[in-house]
Every structure is written in C-alpha cells, then in structure tokens.
C-alpha cells in the first residue's frame, strides 16, 4: 500500500502537493490496462536491449541469459517495444479471457 493516501483531507496533504515517497508509481498496476501484450520470438531476438530502453513503463528487464522479459504486472500493452525492435521479433498477442 502507498504511504501517502490517494485521497487525503486537505490538512493532510503534502506541502505543495508533492509526492514524498520515491518510486510510488509502483502502486499503479498498469498491467490492468492491457488488452494485448508483447510476445518475443527468441529465435530472432539479437539481445540488443532496445525494447527495454524504449519501454515507457521500464518494465522490460534483460534476463541472465541475455534475453528480454516484460513484467506483466506493469506492461500496459502500448506496443512501443514492437515498433522499436530492430529484429522484428516482438508481436502483440490478444489477452486470453
């Protein structure tokens, strides 16, 4: 749970409406926004990491074996990784019910 209440009384608001907890964006589970998500064809992947660099959520990390992996808790399905991938190895796949 966030340290700062998302709906405080005015007396309890931080000075200047600042967000005082570093990294509090983690409470936003943006994975819920996703209707389709990226799937990597690792045979074509060249481990360049450009998908991780461009991911606006910062949810793509490079695994120990050098291949990328998305944290689906936060991947919102924007498909920027698909557009940026040099090897054209990422495709968007509809979420299953």
């Amino acid at each position: 749970m966030p340290k700062q209440s998302p709906s405080p009384d005015w007396q309890d608001m931080a000075l200047g409406t600042a967000i005082t907890e570093p990294g509090s964006a983690k409470y936003q589970r943006t994975g819920d926004w996703r209707s389709s998500g990226p799937v990597w064809d690792l045979d074509k992947c060249i481990k360049c990491g450009v998908c991780a660099v461009f991911c606006p959520e910062g949810c793509i990390t490079m695994r120990a074996d050098g291949y990328p992996e998305a944290d689906m808790e936060y991947c919102k399905g924007c498909a920027i990784c698909v557009c940026e991938c040099w090897a054209v190895c990422i495709s968007m796949v509809e979420e299953k019910e």
Binding site: P6, W10, M13, G16, T17, A18, I19
Partner: peptide, 23 residues
C-alpha cells in the same frame, strides 16, 4: 532524498489542494 514536485491533481485531490493554498 527524492520527491516529486508538481504531479497531476486528479479531481479527487484538486479541491483539497486548492483549500490548502487558501489556508
């Protein structure tokens, strides 16, 4: 000691932010 200044004020907090400014 990072903080974020100037985040969005959703309708759920804007009124309270304004009240804090008034005070």
């Amino acid at each position: 000691d990072p903080i974020t200044m100037g985040p969005v004020g959703m309708p759920v907090v804007y009124t309270e932010a304004k009240m804090a400014a008034e005070w």
